[in-house]
């Protein structure tokens, strides 16, 4: 465990808390892509199947359970909550997210640490997580104004993987750990946020409302 890793996981957790606070206090999921949230449920279920096969960890296990529970809760709110579901921008959430799943599955089938059920699903979840933000970014681009909580949510969600990159660099030098699959996927994942980061920081410095061109 190093500071980058701890900070990364806390940032990830904070992003989810921000989203839940937004949904619960404003009773609105405006600006949030249900397709991205669906993909996260799939990501966590396929990655954390090892909850059943690996020994419990005082650090990892609670995080895994929280990520699973919160992602399912968010999707539940967006689909079924009487008030919240009416605020969902269905017509702007146009990204064909199913088209992300098949290429990730094919990639995981061929590129994995070990050709076993758990390892292929793990690889699938790493690839799918890298691109899961795309529907959300497309939705934000079509929004004329992005509320603070939504902007902060997406920022924290992107910052988390960027902090993992620092953690991986640290571990490479300090612990000799080499893991190509999450490294390359994490790099792609962070790169997809580049544009968003740019406009987020710009609007923050100019004290303006966030808007993507």
């Amino acid at each position: 465990m190093n500071a980058f890793r701890l900070l990364a996981d806390l940032t990830h957790l904070l992003s989810i808390i921000i989203l839940l606070v937004k949904i619960r206090t404003t009773k609105s999921c405006a600006g949030i892509s249900l397709k991205t949230q669906d993909l996260y449920v799939l990501v966590f279920i396929s990655r954390y199947l090892d909850l059943f096969t690996r020994p419990l960890s005082l650090y990892n296990t609670p995080f895994k359970l929280v990520f699973l529970a919160t992602s399912i809760t968010i999707v539940y709110y967006m689909r079924y909550h009487k008030v919240v579901k009416q605020t969902y921008n269905k017509d702007s959430d146009t990204f064909k997210h199913y088209f992300l799943i098949l290429p990730c599955a094919v990639l995981a089938f061929f590129i994995n640490p070990k050709f076993t059920f758990i390892e292929v699903l793990w690889s699938f979840s790493i690839y799918l997580e890298a691109v899961a933000i795309l529907p959300q970014l497309v939705l934000l681009q079509s929004s004329s104004n992005i509320d603070n909580l939504t902007g902060n949510y997406v920022f924290m969600l992107g910052a988390y993987r960027a902090l993992y990159l620092l953690n991986w660099i640290y571990r490479f030098f300090a612990e000799d750990v080499v893991r190509w699959i999450p490294w390359i996927a994490g790099l792609v994942q962070t790169a997809l946020y580049a544009d968003f980061f740019y406009y987020y920081i710009k609007s923050w410095r100019n004290n303006e409302r966030l808007k993507l061109p």
Binding site: H12, F63, F67, P113, N167, V178, R179
Partner: peptide, 10 residues
């Protein structure tokens, strides 16, 4: 560099 596979991350 051979890939060491340790799944101790989230």
């Amino acid at each position: 560099v051979p890939s060491k596979h340790v799944k101790d991350e989230l």
